[in-house]
């Protein structure tokens, strides 16, 4: 997982909460858009495709492409339609079964 973010936060103020992504602790803006906050934290990829294992990260940010699928507390969801909550346990969807959320 790369950590150098090419995304810059214009106003990084506001309360942050701890979440875990693939075993790594991250401090993200509480209530922020999960996909956006993960990108700003330098997370990539978000998942690997079930067909070839290719890496994927957010593409459309509007709930249409499903490339930002992650597993949150055991349920596969679109990160761009979720808000950051304290203590979220986030993982890449297990290969081979992330396509059928």
């Amino acid at each position: 997982m790369k950590t150098a973010s090419t995304f810059r936060d214009l106003d990084p103020e506001g309360p942050r909460v701890r979440v875990r992504f693939s075993g790594r602790d991250l401090m993200l803006r509480e209530g922020g858009n999960l996909a956006a906050e993960l990108l700003a934290a330098g997370v990539t990829p978000f998942r690997r495709t079930p067909v070839s294992g290719a890496p994927r990260a957010p593409f459309c940010m509007m709930g249409a492409c499903f490339d930002c699928l992650v597993e949150i507390d055991g349920v596969t969801r679109q990160a761009c339609l979720c808000e950051v909550g304290a203590g979220m346990e986030i993982a890449m969807p297990a290969a081979g079964r992330d396509g059928d959320a």
């Binding site: 995304f7 810059r8 214009l10 803006r29 858009n33 956006a36 990108l39 940010m61 509007m62």
Partner: peptide, 12 residues
């Protein structure tokens, strides 16, 4: 959308 909702911009 990143900019509007989250105030996040892409560099380079």
């Amino acid at each position: 959308i990143l900019l509007k909702q989250s105030g996040i911009v892409c560099e380079g």
